[in-house]
Write a protein that binds this DNA or RNA. Structure first.
Lengths: 341, 341
DNA sequence: CTGAAAGCGCTTACAG
DNA sequence: CTGAAAGCGCTTACAG
């Protein structure tokens, strides 16, 4: 194992000063074209790469973005929400395309926030990604902001939270999917998913759902809502409870994972989807297409979302002005909602 | 935005030297318990964190591991193989648990290997994760090894490739799933998946498959094999080709994604799974359980794999001896293979 | 266009 | 147990 070459080694070989090597390698127009090429060739031959630690220390920035994933505390390892996975993929690519590195870390609700500060030190900016509220972190987020840490969060814009958010219009998504159910003739509805402050995305979906119920002059009082976080088993349990009290025409679920559980529950009681009960989800995760009954759901453009998140975080880092942004959701009609014609 | 505190600031406030601060914060037993506590308290109050760039530069290591994901060049963004996603999750956690950071980057076959070297500079060790062969990278891997870069790859142990590998016994997996099909009475078989040098994992699964065919005294000549990389569409196309020439009792697929495509193909021709044609996959990705016909498949313990990968890479970094390791696969029997009794 | 020098914020021998 | 000092490998004013 040979020790790594430094810029001094290159300088020595090229017969120039170390400063010139540094300039040449960073494509400074200050250095003579010819010299620059020669230095680059030598660097290439030696497989030399600039030491990032030294470079970053000197430049006082890291060329690194950190992605902080907030998981639901109950979800087990193997069940990372596929939606986030998809986001992870697009963020990774967008980051790389921008010439930045990506540090990924999972934040656990149980831990204290050590990791965030650590990461904020190693990264020029942070992307926060997670379902549910960042309410628990509000204080920490304020602290980050005070320190001058640049961060963006995925989710609903929210006056009460520090920081800028980029998200998908959950209210509109809830409207789209519920309106479709109404349009094709469903009359009675249930909703599965947390619908309080702790889960702003879910709540917005629920609000969209309720707004359609109200406008359609359906009996809002007959609507059942059951709490659930985004897991298959929560969906299952909530659906069982609902069906024990009565059978709605359609169940609107706050996520595809919940919908998968609801479908399993409906079947376990001997009903058929969508014949006896229609089910719709949210997220358009991969499973939803291949599911036993392909799921009608709401698609969020994760590709675009990743690009937006990275592009805007970079703007933030460059002290440009960034505002909240809400992407439009897209209704995906498959079989689980019933008669589509 | 206030500028960040440094160890000198802490030293000033604590009335000690900067060296002492550094020692206290790294829990050196050299410094007086009381002083240590006082310094730590101040650091906490100031929300001070050690500058990693400076620390790493000085210590000449990065406390960072890099995960290099090799994707099939054809797979589109949204379809990152769920198996890798699961690995990503477990690697992320294992890395964090070990007190390291994780840098994630997607290597694109089209690009040159710049990223690898970059990453090798920012990380103490590399984990290579991808389906298929690393043949194309063989030269680069040798170079990495020469430079003294520590790396581990996920996959089949392979004499011809540099580096140590940790993987799952693909041959045995192929045996398990095929033997089960034979046991429950299937007689004629097809295999979908690349079965040449370029895809060592798939080839090993195929070899396991063929060994069962041979031992079962079935007519090996009648076995059809069609190439496919791990995508739903490749699986679909390959299955269509197979069914156009004849209908085997069972199709063994080199991955779950391929199996999903095969099932779609079988249905599109009016056949039923498993009644007319049984299908089995490999990987036990999340979809396989929720699929229209739950998939019989082979499970690889990604949780363990991630831990093993990280633990062994850390050993490598500490100059301990590490050897190839092959994890046992586990057969998961669901409905797609037919009569299970 | 090029070089000598300072300094980014740490860790760790070295000396006491 | 503590401090003064060197140095990790760069980038970038500063001077020419």
């Amino acid at each position: 194992m040979k020790s790594k070459a430094t810029s001094f080694d290159i300088a020595h070989m090229a017969g120039v000063s170390q400063s010139t090597v540094s300039r040449a390698l960073s494509n400074s127009p200050l250095v003579n074209q010819e010299t620059r090429d020669r230095i680059k060739q030598i660097a290439k031959d030696l497989n030399y790469k600039v030491d990032k630690n030294a470079s970053n220390l000197r430049k006082q920035h890291s060329q690194t973005l950190a992605l902080l994933l907030f998981e639901d505390p109950t979800s087990d390892d193997s069940l990372i929400n596929p939606f986030f996975i998809s986001m992870l993929g697009s963020i990774t690519k967008a980051t790389a395309a921008a010439g930045y590195d990506l540090l990924v870390s999972f934040q656990n609700l149980k831990d204290d926030w050590h990791a965030v500060y650590e990461d904020s030190n190693k990264a020029d900016g942070l992307i926060l990604l997670g379902y549910g509220s960042y309410t628990d972190y509000e204080y920490k987020l304020s602290q980050l902001e005070e320190q001058g840490t640049r961060f963006l969060r995925w989710g609903a814009p929210d006056e009460k939270h520090p920081g800028i958010s980029i998200g998908c219009d959950n209210f509109l998504g809830g409207v789209l999917v519920t309106q479709h159910l109404v349009d094709i003739g469903h009359k009675s509805f249930a909703f599965i998913g947390d619908a309080d402050e702790s889960a702003p995305e879910f709540k917005a979906r629920f609000d969209g759902f309720m707004s359609v119920i109200a406008e359609s002059k359906l009996n809002a009082d007959s609507v059942v809502q059951k709490d659930a976080i985004s897991t298959e088993s929560d969906g299952y349990n909530a659906a069982i409870e609902i069906l024990n009290t009565g059978k709605p025409d359609a169940i609107v679920c706050a996520s595809d994972l919940i919908a998968m559980g609801a479908i399993r529950a409906i079947r376990s009681l001997g009903f058929k989807v969508p014949r006896d009960v229609a089910v719709v989800g949210y997220d358009n995760i991969q499973i939803s297409e291949f599911a036993s009954t392909p799921l009608t759901t709401v698609h969020q453009n994760t590709q675009l979302a990743g690009e937006l998140l990275v592009a805007n975080l970079l703007k933030l880092i460059n002290n440009e002005i960034v505002t909240d942004y809400l992407m439009p959701p897209e209704l995906i009609i498959r079989q689980s909602c019933g008669r589509t014609t």
